[in-house]
């Protein structure tokens, strides 16, 4: 059976001029109010002074280790942080402030999340029916069939339950549910862990296709090699803030084009490079200091570093937060 589909059906509507920057996050901080003993509370800052921007047609990879605040950023953009979270700073979507009301209105349609695994699907519902529940406009059944054709999912697959899907199929179902309303901003939170390389590549190609149609994709991952396969720009997270934003092409050789000592260390520690780690570990939010949070592990530390958090500065078509950036 040949499957017919018209690629134009799925093109996102044109993002007007002036939306070169689809998403702009500036000076974002997120804190949690926590109870300690009894009624004593403390405020724990987990994300501080974070800046990123994403244009349409662009894939921005957000790379960092667990606990660096990558997923919290996604939750802040979607407005799904828990009630005890305090958010400050500015998030602009299409040059307009993203207020809680606006977030509520456009998440799931304009802004969407591709979740991590098949566990995010309802285990007791056939996948086609589930994808239909995501449709906001028009005929859900038609929309679901159309999107399944695009992602090469047969009707047989639609009648299956999530546990019956292979890793690659599950991935395509999650993407089709996310993009079925023609979203412009797609946030993919760790979409490829533990998958076979071919499925990883397939998933990344799907994300690339979406940007070719004018969407912006934020790819959140701990795995720098996955990010490098597809991303245009890489934002490196460390202890709740962006320490460097760099074109993906700067990851090459000995890392000489990279700006921040942590990014260089990250690149050097890959098995295909030196595989030599720097010692130490990322501090926990309760132990965040005033100065540069990487300072205790850094070879270039000076008194300047421990005083205050360095500001983000422009350097060679990228950005870096370091007094000693080269």
């Amino acid at each position: 059976m040949t499957i017919e589909y018209n690629p134009d059906d799925f093109k996102s509507t044109e993002i007007g001029p002036g939306y070169k920057s689809l998403l702009e996050v500036s000076d974002l901080s997120v804190s949690f109010v926590q109870y300690q003993k009894g009624l004593r509370q403390r405020v724990l800052k987990v994300i501080s002074n974070l800046d990123i921007s994403l244009g349409s047609g662009e894939i921005l990879a957000v790379v960092g280790s667990s606990g660096s605040g990558k997923s919290l950023l996604a939750h802040a953009i979607l407005g799904i942080l828990p009630n005890n979270a305090i958010c400050s700073g500015k998030i602009l979507y299409k040059n307009e402030l993203l207020t809680p009301e606006r977030q509520k209105k456009i998440r799931g349609s304009e802004i969407t999340l591709v979740p991590q695994s098949v566990n995010f699907l309802d285990p007791l519902m056939r996948v086609s029916a589930q994808v239909r529940t995501a449709v906001r406009q028009g005929n859900p059944e038609e929309a679901q069939k159309k999107i399944f054709r695009r992602y090469d999912l047969s009707e047989g697959v639609g009648n299956q339950y999530p546990f019956q899907l292979s890793g690659g199929m599950a991935r395509r179902v999650l993407i089709s549910a996310a993009v079925i309303n023609g979203s412009k901003l797609i946030i993919a939170d760790e979409p490829t862990p533990g998958l076979h390389p071919e499925i990883v590549t397939e998933t990344l190609n799907h994300l690339r296709e979406l940007t070719d149609e004018g969407c912006g994709v934020m790819l959140i991952t701990h795995d720098i090699s996955t990010a490098l396969q597809v991303a245009d720009k890489i934002a490196v997270f460390y202890a709740g803030t962006t320490i460097e934003i760099t074109p993906a092409a700067d990851f090459h050789g000995q890392g000489q084009a990279l700006r921040h000592p942590y990014t260089k260390a990250l690149w050097q520690s890959l098995p295909q490079n030196d595989f030599t780690p720097i010692p130490g570990f990322q501090p926990l939010p309760a132990n965040f200091s005033e100065g540069c949070l990487f300072a205790p592990r850094c070879g270039k530390i000076t008194s300047e570093c421990t005083g205050s958090l360095p500001v983000m500065q422009d350097l060679r078509s990228g950005k870096v937060r370091c007094h000693h950036a080269t």
Binding site: P193, H222, I224, P277, I278
Partner: peptide, 17 residues
């Protein structure tokens, strides 16, 4: 069994070394 698949590159290298 995929011991370091969920970890960042530096932690992975630290544990393996």
């Amino acid at each position: 069994d995929e011991m370091t698949a969920m970890l960042d590159a530096i932690t992975q290298a630290q544990i393996w070394q």
